[in-house]
Design a binder for these strands. Structure first.
Lengths: 208, 208, 208, 208
DNA sequence: GATGAATGAGTATTCATTCAT
DNA sequence: AATGAATGAATACTCATTCAT
């Protein structure tokens, strides 16, 4: 009796694996297409076809297009957050921390070009969603600034809100621009430039 | 033909005036609507209705929706360019030039909130079009830098391409953010912050 | 000046006429198709195609399928109400009134077979809408009953709610059945049968 | 093949029992859901899920959704037929027979509210199928009439076809209305009203 | 026998664009 | 020049049904 029965576990596992694989292929295709054409420029049909499935399959795995998009963004933001957090962990001086942070960002852009394009291309419909990415960046920058001050450095005297928008804008644009085509500038030059602007541009009362 | 017409010139002029007026009303409505809802969020019907015309009239004046959008952007870019050029004309020191530039930008944002929103909201579909705006900004910044160098200052030693992307990103984001709601920061603080970051962040070899 | 202008009135009127004609053709097609296949069995595309228009045209005239259906039902109910009201106006005795009512209903069914089919086929989705028809019928029946009582007849002693459901059910079914194929019974026999059941079936305490 | 099997009969029987049980659970779920939402409002997935099976299982037991629906209706009609037949068996007078018939119907509605809702809600798609129910009712009524006549009563002189449609319409509507919410009228009042209308409404030549 | 992932035709609705008046 | 009715391709989402495991 027991012999003739397929183990339910292995069956369920196989089905689950297959399901997960389909889901992952859809996500993969979506990442590519979103990176190329943005949220609105991509159809659920496009995503399914690109992944090699019929159009209805999409809805077996995601309630709708926005949900899929949100999921991709959430994943990416989490990955980026981890990367940035690790990069500055245990780094002593401010200067080194800012540079480590820039380096981590560049590495992320190198490895995840599609994600970076999605995260930093401000599709109007994706505004809510991509806000989180920039908030994330702003938080990382703010953390750096707090550490700097804890090391005895004076605050820059600049408006904190304006400053954080400025730095976020700078980072997002440079990373997106560079990820578009890494041949545009040397890796080291990008890191150095971002680091220097952030360090020098936000120093306490420069004239003093 | 010409016989029956009295003063064909004035007539044609009147007709041309009327035509131009219709065109302008369509542009005006489009500016408002694009600022509110982006390129994709606005239909040609919306634009015509808002302007008080039937939907077919739109196509008597513009070949299609993108063309209208492009025209608005081109106009705006030209206006911005003039404003920025004038702002620095005849200004002596680098510091003053950068500050004048920031001030001009803020003034533009105050007077043309709709345009600023269109120009700096990176709608994916409008990407090609809005690239020109940022190029414009980059050019203005580069011009400032050249002037600085001509005044004897050393270049910062930073990669020029990266630097210009960084500054453009910073400017675009801060201006868009502030134009969205000017109560977010004091006018003076915005000018001061942008000026300081640009000046200090791009100094020649800081350690030296 | 005034000569060269086409009279706006005639222009508007022509456009309005054309618009109204399209609307009417859509309504006409919809009546036929709904009568054949019910609300759910008919597509907006079907209606447009049957009327000789492209699918988008439907939405130029009706916000959606249900709205069109509701309009047809409302029209029909109003027409039926008028007919029934007129039929009993000025008719003296109860017996004559009930017979006049039955006759009017039969005439309506003869002239508007499609409408009758729509009104009395209780499509589940159309429940809300078709309820109004039956309410209408119930009201007409109740009016007859009130008149009867005002003529000195005693009430039947039957539960009024049950009775009205019974009569409505009877009427709706017989009319729908007969409209489906008028050869099923002779006109006079239908009228006579409905009249007799209603009169005799609802007499005051028969045994008394 | 047979060698290795111990007691193939009991095995097959067990398998058959299991199969029948699955079938029954599907039917049970379908009855509930159809009563709530009609044929079109219920998906095969809904039925399978409600019964605790995967969606494919449905098609192991029924060729398609309509077949399942037809089967439920057929079962119900048979049950109703039995009930009605038994109710009048051996009942003497016409009056008692009609009352017994009405009582049986009410009892059926009380015990099988779901079925009654399915049987008498004239979903357009279910029209073919539900016709059989009404035919059944008509047959039962006709049987009553025949018996009456055999007892020496004269026929009513009314058109038999029209009459049966009228009575069927009356019955179906009242029962469906009452089953929807039994608080709408007292049990006894429903029975009495239906009985009286049928008896008095179909009497031989009332004027005589 | 049961599973459940996959299919793909179907359906409502939108909107850029055309064109007869 | 202006009108606005008409077009029809596009697009998100559903669901009956199939079939490999």
């Amino acid at each position: 009796m027991s012999v003739s029965k397929t183990e339910p576990d292995s069956r369920e596992t196989a089905a689950a694996r297959s399901r997960a694989a389909t889901r992952e292929r859809l996500l993969e295709s979506a990442r590519t297409l979103f990176a190329e054409r943005g949220l609105r420029g991509v159809t659920t049909h496009d995503i399914a076809r690109e992944a090699g499935f019929a159009s209805g399959t999409f809805y077996l795995h995601f309630p709708d297009k926005r949900a899929l998009f949100r999921e991709i963004v959430a994943e990416s933001v989490a990955a980026l957050r981890d990367r940035l957090a690790k990069s500055v962990a245990g780094v002593g001086g401010l200067s080194d921390a800012v540079r480590a942070h820039a380096t981590a960002m560049i590495e992320f852009a190198e490895e995840q070009r599609d994600l970076v394009r999605i995260l930093f291309s401000a599709d109007v419909d994706a505004a809510v969603v991509s806000a989180s990415v920039l908030d994330e960046l702003a938080a990382a920058i703010a953390a750096g600034r707090r550490e700097r001050e804890s090391h005895g450095d004076d605050p820059s005297g600049l408006d904190a809100a304006v400053l954080s928008q400025a730095l976020v804008g700078m980072w997002a644009r440079v990373i997106a621009w560079w990820a578009e085509d890494p041949a545009r500038a040397q890796r080291g030059a990008v890191i150095e430039t971002l680091t220097r602007i952030q360090l020098e541009g936000t120093r306490p009362t420069p004239g003093a």
